[in-house]
């Protein structure tokens, strides 16, 4: 017998001798329900709630009502921090006036040399101040991972209240999950040395969320 069969039959045998272990319902029924556990009440305002949480987790948040102003906002942010004015962006963002703002943004997946990575986001979650990113051909995961600065341009209408709402949105818009769903909640950090939090471990040192309409 294979290891698989051995393990499964061991479990089955142990289960049958334990009368209390009666499966509640067939698995298919259980899965179809997508039953939610206790979840937090939605914030009064999703955008305010998201911002509050994101900032608490050391993300920076900027807002504009004019999408075309995103490059200028970013340029100002980078200049203020004396960061490089060039980087890579998702292809969906290539049409923004980067050059006019003095930025050089190439529509490539990030490599180790790229210092700034600009992405969109599938949605964001107010409950935890989290960006939800889906990997894909046009939405490479490396752009939010390798550069020291990760910038996410987020449509404020894509902020949902809870993690469960985010899963529902995913199911609504995609038939199956992408290779990687990443929840990003602030810059990478470690507290392994003396339990002292240090920002910028192996991933980005800073995460900037720019709220802008599509």
């Amino acid at each position: 017998m294979s290891a698989r069969d051995n393990i499964l039959s061991k479990i089955r045998e142990a289960r049958s001798s334990a009368p209390q272990n009666v499966p509640a319902a067939p698995i298919a029924n259980y899965l179809a329900l997508h039953q939610r556990g206790p979840s937090p009440p939605p914030p009064d305002d999703l955008v305010t709630g998201f911002k509050k949480r994101a900032i608490k987790l050391s993300s920076d948040v900027l807002e504009t009502s004019v999408r075309m102003e995103v490059p200028a906002l970013l340029a100002h942010y980078l200049e203020e921090r004396k960061l490089p004015l060039r980087g890579v962006c998702w292809t969906s963002l290539v049409g923004l006036p980067w050059g006019a703002a003095g930025l050089e943004m190439l529509p490539n997946p990030a490599t180790n040399q790229d210092m700034v990575g600009v992405t969109g986001a599938f949605c964001a979650i107010a409950e935890t101040g989290t960006l939800m990113m889906l990997s894909g051909a046009e939405t490479p995961a490396s752009t939010s991972l390798l550069p020291e600065t990760h910038v996410a341009v987020l449509d404020p209408l894509r902020i949902v209240a809870t993690m469960e709402d985010a899963w529902d949105l995913l199911r609504l818009e995609y038939k199956q999950p992408p290779r990687a769903v990443n929840f990003i909640s602030g810059p990478s950090r470690t507290a392994d040395i003396e339990q002292t939090v240090t920002l910028g471990a192996h991933g980005p040192y800073r995460v900037l969320v720019i709220l802008a309409p599509p």
Binding site: R53, L57, T128, T130, Q176, P177, P178, R179, A180, V181, N182, F183, I184, S185, G186, P187, S188, R189, G203
Partner: peptide
């Protein structure tokens, strides 16, 4: 309240 990264990896 949440870790910096939660990755759900499928295939």
């Amino acid at each position: 309240s949440i870790t910096n990264y939660v990755s759900v990896l499928t295939g």
